[in-house]
């Protein structure tokens, strides 16, 4: 299978690889996929609780090149967005940006799921810890 230049670029130079403290109240962690299915994505984001802006995002992915590229791209896109803006990222945006072939669409779906899972984890922490800090934008 031929990969697009953008997939190759993210594979060769993955952005924002790493892990954050998953116990921090400002960090949301999303882990999706399963080893048996051949892909697992861990996506983390750190939110400024005052502004609701995502200040940092990190990922680690077990999966094919397209899965790695999808999650790497997602972390790039997340930075600087508010939590609500981040929820608007659609898997089709990732498909278009990376020119993913049909058999790799599930990688983009997984990346969208990872974003949603990370945000929901963050929101849950906020509502438990400091409910008043979660304000609508």
């Amino acid at each position: 299978m031929a990969y697009s230049d953008k997939v190759l670029d993210h594979y060769n130079n993955p952005r924002n690889v790493g892990s954050m403290d998953k116990n921090s109240p400002n960090v949301g962690t999303g882990m999706v996929g399963a080893p048996e299915c051949g892909d697992v994505m861990k996506l983390q984001l750190m939110v400024n609780p005052d502004s609701g802006v995502i200040e940092d995002a990190k990922f680690k992915t077990f999966g094919c090149g397209s899965a790695i590229a999808s999650s790497s791209l997602a972390t790039e896109w997340l930075k600087g967005k508010t939590v609500d803006q981040a929820l608007e990222i659609k898997n089709t945006d990732i498909v278009n940006e990376l020119s993913l072939p049909p058999v790799k669409i599930h990688c983009s779906v997984l990346a969208e799921d990872a974003i949603k899972a990370a945000i929901s984890d963050y929101k849950q922490k906020q509502s438990v810890g400091q409910a008043e800090a979660v304000t609508a934008h």
């Binding site: 993955p14 697992v40 994505m41 680690k60 992915t61």
Partner: peptide, 8 residues
């Protein structure tokens, strides 16, 4: 493996 959440 540096990239793998499973390895971590």
């Amino acid at each position: 493996r540096d990239l793998s959440p499973l390895y971590e």
